[in-house]
Simulated assay, not measured.
Amino acid sequence: MHENLRKKPDLLIVSDTPMWRVDGRNLAFEPVIREIDNFYPLFDKITWIGFRHDNDKIQDSAVALKHAQVKFVFLNNIGGKGLMDKLKILWKIPAYFYRVYRQIRKCDVVHARGPSIPAFFTLIIAHIVTRPVYWYKYAGNWDLENPPFSYKMQKNYLKKNTKVVGTINGRWPNQEKHLVSFENPCFTNAELQKAKEIAATKSFSGDLNLLFVGRIEERKGFDRLLEALAQFRKGDGIGTAYMVGGGVKKADFEQLAAEMLQIDYVFTGPLKRDALNEIYSKSHIFCLPSLSEGFPKVLAESAAFGCVPVVSDLSCIGQYILHFKNGLLLQDISPAEIKEHLSWMLSHRDELKAMSRSVNEITDNFTYEYYNERISKDILSGLD
């Protein structure tokens, strides 16, 4: 009987994820850590390649793994804006390529997280070392008309490389068979159930709290959001605007908010899971007027807590958020359009409550348990 039990495969993760080594612990971005932590029922051993950032400030959202036993393989962080910094990248590429190649030869399943340079190495190596099962997670906007050169190159290579299973955001016409539509996981089943219970009791009478979660920068539309919020006053219906996230321009935007806003607002900085859940619990409207997205996990997270979204109609977002059904979509992503949508919400409370119930229903496929089922079915079946 025991000889029929198949050993769980070994997994190699290839990424450009920032990592830190602190007091004997390896730290990385919490949403990625949570995803890796929940891989552990599927694999025997996990090795994770990423970039070591010991000389940089540790991100507030960096945490250590809780469950999975993972061997970290650090690549020295390089790069920058100067010419010499860019030349150093070219100098290091052969060594980095060899380190990825050497690790791939040892494992059963290769999970590349891209678009990134290490993930692109994996696409090339898949033609050389064919034994492992290859899984490339393309996190960007699959439908972007004019992507950066490196994104376009990796997308085109992935489309043609049928030896690699590509998981992408959304479902698209003429999608190749080896490209599989996946939702990005955010919760355990138990966490989702708790969030849904909170959503069911959320009231949309009185002042409504607004929430932004993401990097505090223009690319996430934060400047446009501030301009829109500057047109509201206390008593107009907005309670507190919670600005969650960090970034190099955060201090500049805090100063700008102090000059522009006449409503209550809080800049929280980056928050870890429990603290962020508290903000989701007391928020009513989630606003992300981003200029570039794949599918933001924070959209599914806020929806689980019953927050009604005002979000850009980018990538596959419109496949989940239906205009005036379970949220509002931004087309030109202007301050005037954001203000118009928020004003509509404030004056249509009954519709807003119905939207909250409706958007809550999209979250069932965003659990780690469902994600693992999909991995087993669509990726690990290649081991048979």
Rank of each mutant, 00 (worst) to 15 (best):
M1F: 14
M1E: 12
L12V: 03
P18K: 03
M19N: 05
N26F: 09
E30S: 10
D37N: 12
N38T: 07
Y40K: 08
P41W: 02
D44Y: 02
T47S: 03
I49A: 00
F51K: 12
S61K: 07
A62K: 03
A62S: 15
K66C: 15
N77Q: 14
I78G: 03
K88M: 11
A95Q: 04
R99F: 10
C107P: 00
V109G: 01
R113Q: 11
P115Y: 00
P115I: 00
T122L: 00
I125D: 00
V129Y: 01
T130N: 14
P132M: 05
W135E: 00
W142Y: 12
P148D: 07
K155Y: 05
P173A: 09
N184L: 12
F204R: 00
S205E: 12
G206M: 10
D207I: 12
G214P: 00
E217K: 02
K220C: 04
R224E: 10
E227R: 09
A228T: 13
A230I: 09
A230F: 04
A230C: 07
G239L: 13
G246P: 02
Q262M: 10
I263L: 05
K272F: 05
N277R: 10
I279Q: 07
Y280R: 09
S281F: 14
C287H: 06
L288V: 07
P289E: 01
F295P: 06
A303L: 09
A304V: 12
F305L: 13
V311F: 10
S312I: 05
C316N: 04
L329H: 07
S334F: 07
W344E: 06
R349V: 04
L352M: 14
K353R: 14
M355Q: 08
I362T: 11
F366W: 13
I375L: 02
I379D: 03
